[in-house]
Design a protein around this nucleic acid. Structure first.
Length: 219
DNA sequence: AGCCAGGCTACCG
DNA sequence: CGGTAGCATGGC
C-alpha cells in the first residue's frame, strides 16, 4: 500500500471516524460529546448526508463561512441564519444585506461573506438541482479551490479531495511534499493514491484536520 | 493577552 | 507571475 493510503488507515485507527460534514441538526445529535465546540452534528460512519436540500445548502454556505475561521464561530453564524429561516437560497437573496451581514458576524469578515453568500445563492438557484461543475464554482467570486472542493465533496458527494492548510503542513512534515507546493499539485497526489471513493475522501480530510489540531495542542 | 482559525481577492513590484 | 495586505470575530 502506498504512503498516502496507509496514512489514512493509521489516522482512522488513531482517531476513529469523524463523521463530517457537521450539520446543525442530524440524527446523531449528542452522540459525539468528545468533539471540540458545541457542534454536535457529526455523524460518524453515516455517509447518507445531506438528507435534504436544506442540508445540502447548509453545507455550501458553511464552506464559505468557514474560510479562515474556526468552526465554533461558523456554528454561531449558522444558528443565527437558521433563526431567520435563511438557510435557504431565496431567503438569502431577499433578506436585507445588512441583516444578513449582522447574522453572520460571529464568523468574521461578515461584510465580505455576506456578499459571497448572495452571489453563491444566486448561482445555486440557477443550478436548479444540478451538480455544479468545478470550473463554474471556481469562477464565482469568493469561491477558491478549497471551498469548491468542500462543496463538491460534502454537499454533492463528488470525489474531489479537499486540500487545506493542515494538509499542506502535515505532508510537509512527513517530507512528502515541499512547503511551497500548490493546491493543484497536492490534490492529485491524494487522488492518485486513493480509491476514487467520496467516503474515503470525506473521512480522510476530516481526519487530517483532527490530527493537525491534536498535534497543535501538544506543542 | 496575544495568537490563531477548515481562505480568497486585489494589488503591488 | 510570486508575494502579501486586507478582510473581522471570538475561542483558547
Amino acid at each position: 500500500m502506498n504512503k498516502i493510503f496507509s496514512f489514512y488507515h493509521q489516522l482512522l485507527k488513531m482517531y476513529s471516524p469523524q463523521g463530517w460534514w457537521p450539520l446543525l441538526e442530524c440524527e446523531h445529535l449528542g452522540k459525539n460529546p468528545t468533539k471540540t465546540g458545541s457542534m454536535t452534528g457529526y455523524h460518524p460512519n453515516d455517509f447518507s448526508y445531506p438528507k435534504s436540500e436544506r442540508q445540502r445548502f447548509e453545507i455550501c454556505i458553511g464552506a464559505i463561512l468557514t474560510q479562515n475561521t474556526n468552526w465554533i464561530n461558523v456554528e454561531k453564524a449558522l444558528k443565527n441564519l437558521s433563526k431567520l429561516n435563511a438557510i435557504d437560497a431565496k431567503k438569502i437573496l431577499s433578506i436585507e444585506i445588512n441583516k444578513l451581514s449582522q447574522a453572520i458576524r460571529p464568523a468574521g469578515y461578515h461584510n465580505q461573506k455576506a456578499k459571497k453568500l448572495n452571489i453563491f445563492a444566486a448561482y445555486y438557484l440557477g443550478l436548479d438541482g444540478r451538480i455544479p461543475a468545478r470550473e463554474d464554482l471556481l469562477s464565482i467570486w469568493g469561491i477558491g479551490p478549497e471551498t469548491a472542493d468542500s462543496i463538491l465533496l460534502y454537499a454533492y458527494k463528488q470525489p474531489e479531495f479537499v486540500v487545506d492548510a493542515y494538509t499542506r503542513r502535515i505532508l510537509t512534515g512527513m517530507n512528502i511534499i515541499e512547503e511551497k507546493s500548490g493546491y493543484n499539485e497536492i490534490k492529485p497526489l491524494f487522488e492518485k493514491n486513493l480509491p476514487k471513493d467520496y467516503k474515503i475522501y470525506q473521512e480522510f480530510h476530516a481526519l487530517i484536520v483532527e490530527h493537525a489540531k491534536s498535534i497543535r495542542k501538544i506543542r
